[in-house]
């Protein structure tokens, strides 16, 4: 049996968890296993879980676990796994999913494979994980009675595939006080900034070639005309030309606009990790051999300080 950790918001499983269930079903098709789910949440999740192929839902509704506590959650999962002996424990590749699974691994003296894209479940399990910020696949071998896996983000679509019934079983873990030594004390709601780098249909990115914070002026102007949002590579945030929250890259925002206009950005893999899900990439760069051109759809060779104003003028004239 494959056991999937579900995270939820407002009484509904979140999208990464539903994607994880889609992945679990493709794995179950190889192994012939059933899919069960576990959540730190109410019975009412069962309906949506049934729609996504879960035949049994283990609800852990202990009041003290409702505020996230990594170790307490992990101890609970381990106790449940010891009881029902799943072949796989699979979690979303979220901040919590990865953290809890690392603890489950530590508690069980087992290895965890994170960022999983694919599993070939033969005699020994060959797992493909995303590595180097998504630039490489890494193939690993696991030989454990319980495989501990977390998902690569947005690797599969969250699709429905209902089963007839999803039983709900309540599980009550035995927890010591010390497992709550890292627990969320309070939660500040995210600030709604309107259109963000993550949601904008057009993103304009500046890199080293922009040269200064003033240099971003023309990018801002183009952004306004195209109703887009302006971000920067890590060079620009490290030099203080842009705030860190505007960083596009592996360690900043991961964007997926209809068009990404990359100005003066060479295209280090850490930057590409943040923008490769763009539908189209237009590059403006002085270097015709810039690595970013081998990831882009369109290129203009030359100085962005001349080309971007020319584009703005052309748009105004047309």
């Amino acid at each position: 049996m494959i056991l999937v950790l579900i995270e939820h918001r407002d009484g509904q499983p979140d999208i990464p968890s539903l994607q994880t269930l889609s992945f679990a079903r493709s794995l179950a098709a190889q192994t012939g296993d059933s899919i069960e789910a576990v959540a730190f949440g109410p019975d009412s999740l069962a309906g949506r879980l049934r729609d996504h192929g879960v035949s049994r839902y283990h609800s852990i509704a202990d009041e003290q676990l409702m505020a996230y506590a990594s170790e307490a959650w992990a101890v609970s999962l381990k106790q449940l796994a010891d009881l029902i002996s799943p072949k796989v424990l699979l979690a979303p590749g979220s901040i919590k999913g990865n953290e809890v699974m690392a603890y489950v691994g530590a508690l069980s003296a087992l290895s965890v494979v994170t960022n999983v894209c694919q599993v070939d479940a033969g005699n020994d399990w060959r797992v493909t994980r995303s590595s180097w910020g998504g630039s490489l696949f890494e193939k690993v071998l696991i030989d454990q009675d319980l495989a501990l896996l977390t998902m690569a983000n947005n690797n599969v679509e969250a699709s429905e595939s209902a089963v007839d019934v999803c039983d709900t079983v309540s599980f009550t873990p035995a927890l010591e006080k010390k497992y709550f030594r890292a627990q969320v004390k309070s939660l500040e709601n995210p600030v709604d900034e309107g259109m963000s780098l993550k949601t904008a249909p057009v993103v304009i990115g500046g890199g080293r070639g922009v040269g200064s914070s003033e240099g971003f002026g023309v990018l801002e102007e183009l952004g306004e005309i195209l109703k887009g949002v302006v971000g920067g590579s890590r060079v620009t945030t490290n030099n203080g030309w842009r705030a860190h929250r505007h960083q596009i890259g592996l360690t900043g925002n991961h964007i997926s606009p209809k068009l990404y206009i990359a100005c003066g950005i060479s295209g280090a893999i850490q930057h590409m990790a943040g923008c490769k899900n763009s539908d189209n990439i237009l590059v403006i760069n002085t270097d015709e051999n810039a690595p970013i051109l081998s990831h882009a759809d369109y290129g203009v060779i030359g100085d962005l300080h001349e080309i971007v104003p020319a584009i703005i003028k052309e748009i105004k004239n047309s």
């Binding site: 290895s111 494979v113 060959r126 493909t128 590595s131 180097w132 998504g134 630039s135 490489l136 696949f137 890494e138 193939k139 690993v140 071998l141 696991i142 030989d143 490769k276 990439i281 590059v283 015709e288 051109l293 081998s294 990831h295 882009a296 759809d297 369109y298 290129g299 203009v300 060779i301 030359g302 100085d303 001349e306 080309i307 104003p309 020319a310 584009i311 003028k313 052309e314």
Partner: peptide, 26 residues
């Protein structure tokens, strides 16, 4: 975990259409 090997991801080999050079490409 037993490490086997790295493999390149498929999207690594794309080539941009060069629209032109300098402001004339606007």
């Amino acid at each position: 975990i037993g490490f086997l090997k790295f493999e390149p991801t498929p999207e690594q080999s794309k080539q941009a259409v060069i629209l032109g050079t300098g402001p004339e490409a606007a």
